[in-house]
């Protein structure tokens, strides 16, 4: 048991070291897009205000009284599309890496899958180690988003003259942007969003293993299964937002969590079975 746990940690460490470069690159890109974008928007707005002031001959304080200040939210609002691009980048890379993390072992020049499948430890450790690696990937990006918001607040303080600033707290800033979906501040939201994400990862993992076991047939089966679970979940989610739904929101929530748990259990069980006796190098 203990040796298996150590093996799991070492495998996860290995996986993390293998995507370190991709993760750091992605973090740099996202920071560049979000901070650079904010800086640009801010400069444009400031120069607009400056020319307005010059024309009217007001002071900054007088301008603030008339037009209210320049809030970070307002600036971020203008940046919405750009933030969306950054978040989309993260989602696409994570989703792609969820499959690449398996296929690189099979199709890489080294066929590392041979070695991994012959380790004298339960093969399910491979599944768990790759899952742990993906979660590390996701939560690194999650934590990075928080750092970026902090960075944006800092940038706001540096660039905007104090006469124009509207102070808000950190949590307020996060809560009132569209980022709230990806950085949920309430525990239930956090669990639901990341629970859904986790189940999607499990479904993709198991689809990859189905494909490695039964090739095209496995791939089609896996995709059908994943799509069915996903559609059901999205339908329940949409139902919870829709007031005229047949079920009460709490019932829908319970159902949603139930479906999540069942899908997760099914994906894990199938993955375990496939790794034990069906996958082929």
């Amino acid at each position: 048991m203990k040796t298996n746990l150590i093996a799991l940690l070492k495998l996860a460490d290995l996986e993390i070291r293998r995507f370190r470069g991709i993760l750091l690159g992605l973090m740099a890109l996202v920071a560049l897009i979000q901070l650079g974008g904010l800086s640009m928007v801010t400069r444009t707005r400031l120069s607009q205000i400056e020319s307005q002031i010059e024309r009217s001959g007001m002071t900054l304080a007088e301008f603030k009284l008339q037009n209210s200040g320049l809030s970070l939210l307002e600036l971020l609002g203008e940046l919405d599309g750009v933030t969306g691009v950054a978040i989309a980048c993260c989602i696409v890379v994570v989703a792609a890496y969820t499959l690449i993390i398996w296929y690189r072992d099979w199709f890489g020049r080294a066929s590392f899958a041979y070695r991994l499948l012959m380790l004298p430890h339960p093969r399910f450790l491979l599944y768990l180690s790759k899952l742990a690696a993906i979660l590390t990937f996701v939560f690194s990006l999650f934590a990075w988003q928080i750092v970026i918001v902090a960075g944006q607040m800092l940038l706001y303080h540096v660039q905007i003259p104090h006469q124009l600033r509207i102070e808000r707290t950190f949590i307020d800033t996060i809560r009132s942007t569209d980022l709230v979906i990806f950085i949920p501040v309430r525990l239930t939201e956090f669990l639901l969003v990341y629970g859904l994400g986790l189940v999607i990862v499990l479904l993709l993992f198991t689809t990859a293993l189905l494909e490695r076991s039964y090739r095209l047939k496995g791939l089609l089966g896996g995709l059908a299964l994943s799509a069915a679970a996903f559609v059901l979940l999205v339908w329940l989610w949409a139902g919870a937002e829709d007031r005229g739904s047949f079920l009460y929101p709490t019932e829908l929530l319970a159902l949603f969590i139930g479906v999540l748990l069942v899908s997760a259990a099914a994906a894990l069980w199938l993955g375990w079975r496939l790794l034990r006796g069906k996958v082929s190098v």
Partner: peptide, 12 residues
């Protein structure tokens, strides 16, 4: 132990 026809360790 199995020694496959290629070296199955990551090239990096």
């Amino acid at each position: 132990a199995f020694i496959p026809d290629r070296l199955t360790m990551p090239g990096s």
